[in-house]
Computed example of a mutant assay.
Amino acid sequence: MAIPRLLDHVVIAGPDLEELVRWFAERTGVTASPGGVHPTGTANALVALTVGGERGRQYVELIGPDPDRADAALPTTFGIDALTAPVVRTYAVHPDDIDATVAGARARGYDPGEVSDLSRRTADGSLLQWRLTQGEGRRLDVPFLIDWGSTAHPGLGDIPAVELVAFERVEPDPAALQDVLDALALDDGVAPVVAGTPAGYRLTLQPTEGRVTVL
Rank of each mutant, 00 (worst) to 15 (best):
D71F: 03
L140P: 00
V214H: 07
D97H: 06
R211S: 13
T31P: 00
P34G: 06
G36A: 06
A199P: 01
E54W: 00
L132G: 08
A107R: 13
A107P: 04
L215Y: 06
H94S: 15
S119I: 01
D188F: 03
P207I: 04
R106Q: 12
T90S: 15
D66W: 04
A92K: 05
G104K: 09
R89K: 08
A92I: 06
D124G: 09
G53R: 11
V30R: 03
R121E: 08
V47F: 11
E163Y: 06
G14Q: 02
M1K: 07
R5I: 05
P172R: 10
L62K: 09
P34I: 01
A105H: 04
L205H: 05
D141K: 11
P15V: 02
E54Q: 03
T40D: 13
L83H: 03
A107F: 03
W130D: 08
T101N: 00
F24A: 07
E19Y: 01
M1R: 09
L118A: 15
T208L: 13
L127V: 14
E209A: 14
D68K: 14
L6W: 10
D99S: 13
D71A: 11
L83R: 04
G79K: 03
I12D: 02
I98K: 11
G52H: 03
R202C: 01
L83T: 00
A48S: 15
S119A: 15
F167W: 01
P4E: 13
V51T: 13
A183M: 13
T151I: 01
T213M: 04
L156S: 09
A107T: 07
V11E: 07
G35P: 03
P15Y: 05
P95T: 08
R131A: 04
